[in-house]
Every structure is written in C-alpha cells, then in structure tokens.
Design a protein around this nucleic acid. Structure first.
Lengths: 339, 339
DNA sequence: GTGAAAGCGCTAACAC
DNA sequence: GTGTTAGCGCTTTCAC
C-alpha cells in the first residue's frame, strides 16, 4: 500500500459503494450489521485514517482553532495554552498554535496563513507592537469569531477574557500598606500598554482609599527589559523620600528591581518590600522569594476557548461578544513579609 | 458576500473560466496581461483567500509539519520551537504544535490526530512515559518522515538531532576539578532516561581521565521533582567523605540541591560547587547564580526541521535517516566559581 | 440497506 | 491564451 488507504480502497475490496463505507465508518443507521462489521474490520486491518482535509472541504468545517500568542517562552502563555488545549480537546477541536514574537509583522502573517480556510475562529493575545487593528477588523467583517485574552484593544468588539488588573494592583498596594509601607512606588510598563495602565489605576485607587497623597514621581515607566528596570529602580531609590514599598508591573522587571536593590545594599523586605505580577515560576527561586499576583491562567484558556466554540457553533448572527473579567490572587512570599 | 470568495466567484464575475483565474492567481505563463490584472484586482477588492484545504487535497501536499513536544512550559522546548518556526517559515511550511504533558496516552492521541492527512512529517520529542514505540513504527511503515530531538529511542531508525551529552558532562566534571573539587557527585534522573545515562557516562569518563577512583555511592538517581532532589542532596552531604562538587542532571533539580545545601549551611561554591544542565533562565536568578551546560536550542530546531523537510522533498526511497550530534557549551556562573 | 451522482474549491492535463 | 474536464477523498441527497 503505497498511498494512504481511502474509503474507495475499502469499497472496492468489499464490492460495495463508497457511500456505504462512509456510512458504516460513521456508525449511521440503516446499515446491515454484517456490512458494518466487514468495513470496520478491514479499516482496522489496513489502518485506515480518514482524510480530514476531504471531510473539512465537503463540510466546510475544520474544527480547528487558531491560537496566536506573543511568546510561548513566557510561562503565562504556555500556561494559558494548557487551558485552551484542555477545553479544545474536550469539545473535539484541534489547535493551530503560532507565536508572533511580539512582532506586528508576524502577527499579520500568522493571521493571514491561518485564514486560508484552515481555522474556524481565533484566540488572540495581541503583540506588543500592534497598534493598527485593520487585520482584526477584516476578520470581524468576514464573520470569523475571535476571542481576545490578556492583551486588549479598546474599541474592537470581540469577546474578551481579561483579569481584573485594577483590583489586582489594589490588593497589592493594600498588602504593602498592611505590612507597614507608607511610601509606595510603582514601576510600570510602557505608557501605551493597557495592562500596565490598569494596574496603575488600581494603585492610585488604593492610595486614595488609604489616604496616601499621590506623588507623580513615584510612578516610573519602562520598556520590558531588565536593564531599564534596574536603572528605574536606582532612580526611585535616590529620591529624597525613599520608597519603602515597590509594586512592579511584571515578575521579569521585578528581577531587575531586586538586583538593583541588592546592589545598593537595601534589604528586601525590611527596607523595601516588593510585589509584582504574574507569579511565574522564577518567583520561588529568587532570593528573597518574590510576592506576586497570580492569574488564573488555565481558567483564562478554558473560558476563552469555550466562548469561541460557543460562538462558532451558535452562529454569528445570534452572538453578542462577551467580556469576562477574572479575579486574581496575591501569593505572598518573602519579598513582602516583614517580621 | 456571506461565504468566503472562491475562484468560481471571480470567474463568473469576469466571464472567464476558473482555470484562467487559477492560472492568473498563480502567476503562470501564457496569460494575457490584462486578464491577469483584472483577476488580481478583483481578488484584491474582494479579499480573496485561496482555500488551502482544496489545494492540499488536490495536490496531496499540505506543507504542514507536526511538532510534538512534552511541555511548552519548559524553556528548552519553547526555545527549540523558535528554531523550528524560523526554518519552517523560511521553507514555506506551516506548523501544527502539540504537547503531550509527558503522557504516552496524549502522545498517541496527538499523533493520531495529526496523521489524518494534515501533516507531511513529524518532529517529535518523546514523552517521559513512552516506552512502547508501536505508534512510531506504524508511521515509519507508512513512509511518513520523522525526526526526533532531545528524547531518543534506541533502535528506532529515524533522523535524530541530539546533543553530545557525554561530552557535556565530561566538560562539567573537568571544570569542577579545575576549580579544586576532588570528590565529585552526580545527581541523575531516573535510570531509564537516556539523556541522564549519557551524562553519567561522561561523568565516569572524566573521572577516569582524571584518575579519580569511581565510587558507586556518589551517583544517586531521582525522579524529576524538587523534593526528591532535596532528599538526595541531603543524603550525599551525609556521606563520610562529603562531596565538594556536584553535577546535577537538570537545572530544575539543581534548584532543589541548592535549597538543600543552603538549609544545611553549606556554602556554594566554596564548600560545594554545583554545575547543572540546560541553562534555563532561572540559572541567572538563583543565588548564587547557577553554572549550567547550554544546549544550542535554536540550532536543534533549525536542523531538525531542515532534515525533515529535505526528507519530505527528496522522497522517502532515497533517504537515509541521519543523526546529528551538536556540541553544548558550559556557562560558568557563581555556583562553580571559587575565589 | 445500498448505490449513483453531485459537489466542496482547487489544479492539471488536454483540447482548441 | 483560454476553456473543458476529470479528479483529490469525502459526505449527502435522491433513487430504488
């Protein structure tokens, strides 16, 4: 057998029609038990595999979802994907996984590639670089279901699974306060990043509720890279009123902050307490271990997938985009635990 | 336009045949420039996307590769995948990425799913649980090209991209010796894991060349989990001749070892120097930072992909499986740098 | 219960 | 240069 076995091969061998083989294979009614058995036996013997391409083509259904994330190397994304996989498997869907490397260009290419009839819907976390949403709007116009998670785009009317970043930052600040911090700084991401801005909002809200006057110089913005985080932390520590609490927008940047603090001989948590976001595995390996706000990654993946599949199966006309906002929880470790 | 635009729609609108449209779209010769232009313009205007399913079906070529790895959460794998993606993109192939979660069951399911005509070849890193290779052999018998990387299966005749684990461990031991270590222990993985065993071999070879007598009790085997690593390290440190050097089979286990050493008040690197494998990002975040043997991950991915595509395009009959063994390099950090 | 035939969207002879 | 036709592997009427 040089090529893959087809229903035609089976039909010919059994002297029946391909239609009958197809029916037998799919367990349809009105098939004589013996016929069915014969087909099933031969299929097994020849290791028959249905050609999904052909099925998809005739049914105009691929039962495949496209997933586009910035970087699988981030624990957050690989973790969300586990949730996506679980739900997709459960509902009988296959995944086409791609990463953009935070490049708008590659996001475009990936979207394009997957749109050529391979995918029934998309789960997308936008790249950092993406600020033009034509490619997304084009899909929406074509009626292709999309769900966003983590990275948002305001004004785009698709289903979204987000976390309560405002509440998360709020909780982090309150926690620092309860540990005795009174001069709390915030190391944020670029000013254009929604997630970062939402966390700033939570920070401000908490200060307000705590009756701590807000100071502009306590919020600093950086790119997502270590050196910048180190520099910014040094800057903060050189302020006349030195902060005694630090909220950092991500674990990776917090690594930089901790390095900076150590190099200055500032003890964590006693002189400066630190809390960050994402609860990546590294948090447990740092010295001191790092307090961090954990996101319900698997849940995010499951819900995004579930929303998407519902939308696919219910049909677009009857579907209104839904937005889900999930709760985070703070994992307290040494970096914010004062004696 | 409710459905996706097809060449038929374009043909009808332009009053030409689908064949002409197909030719124009693919830039074939013998097409009148005006005709071509008209087709191209309309295609653009209607945002025509070729249906790859149909093309694949008729050409019996999907230009898609299946990638099966244990866990995208491991930095090693997500890093190799970047290499795979780069090469696949370059050669015009798409990827179908799946993970097994180290489960044989899921490896089977993934392989099965991808085999239904979607994929022209596989890049596989076997799950930890896999000890039966029927599923692999079935593919080989069907003539589907396969390339293994990292996780090996002795006796399976497919192309493989591996690293020189023997040499890597050898280098690690020599390095420890040059730093003054004379009693060097090895914390290995389960006895069934090839990679671990190869590293043990390198360890023994180095001891031999260094004229250090080999002692059985200096090699301990554990599962891949933190608690076991901690316990085993404690065991080693309680030996009458306490080791002053420790080679650990993976960074993750090394984390456990470092914890154990710290809890016993043993200083690293001065009392015990530590070297491990994989050079995951955590190595730089530990205190002290961890020396580790780095694998050329991107290279592994690129080469595996290149071997696979060559095999696909050259045709099976003329192809002999190739084995590539890549060099590693030791990244020396604080955990093995004595003053 | 089963077969014949049309068709999913596209490509590739083979005509003309 | 372009059209006609068959066919990739499968599902689905519609007959009988």
């Amino acid at each position: 057998m040089a090529h893959q076995v087809t229903i035609k091969d089976i039909a010919k061998h059994l002297n029946i029609s391909v239609a009958t083989v197809s029916r037998a294979l799919r367990d349809m009614p009105d098939i004589k038990p013996e016929t069915r058995q014969a087909v099933l036996d031969l299929a097994k013997e020849w290791d028959y595999q249905p050609n999904v391409l052909a099925t998809s083509l005739v049914k105009s259904r691929t039962k495949t979802l496209g997933v586009i994330v910035p970087d699988l190397g981030y624990h957050f994304f690989s973790s969300v994907i586990k949730g996506i996989e679980a739900e997709a498997l459960y509902r009988g869907y296959t995944l086409l996984l791609t990463q953009t490397g935070e490049s708008y260009e590659r996001e475009l290419v990936n979207l394009q590639t997957l749109s050529r009839g391979q995918v029934e819907g998309f789960i997308i976390s936008l790249s950092q670089e993406t600020s033009n949403y034509d490619h997304i709007n084009r899909l929406i116009r074509k009626g292709i279901p999309i769900v966003f998670f983590d990275r948002d785009a305001v004004g785009i009317d698709v289903s979204k699974v987000m976390v309560d970043n405002v509440g998360a930052a709020y909780e982090a600040v309150i926690h620092l306060y309860q540990n005795g911090c009174r001069e709390i700084a915030f190391l944020a991401g670029p000013k254009s990043v929604t997630v970062s801005n939402q966390r700033i909002e939570g920070y401000r809200k908490a200060l307000q509720d705590l009756n701590i006057p807000f100071k502009d110089e306590l919020i600093v913005h950086g790119e997502y890279n270590l050196d910048k985080a180190i520099a910014l932390t040094h800057g903060l520590m050189n302020l006349t009123d030195r902060p005694d609490g630090l909220v950092v927008v991500s674990d990776r940047l917090a690594v930089g902050s901790m390095m900076a603090l150590r190099s200055k001989g500032i003890s964590v948590p006693d002189e400066v307490s630190v809390v960050s976001f994402n609860d990546e595995p590294i948090c447990s390996f740092l010295t001191p271990t790092l307090s961090s706000v954990a996101q319900p990654t698997t849940e995010i993946g499951r819900i995004a997938t579930s929303l998407l599949i519902n939308q696919i199966e219910d049909g677009q006309e009857f579907y209104k985009p839904q937005v889900r906002v999930l709760k985070t929880h703070l994992v307290i470790r040494e970096s914010s635990r004062r004696k």
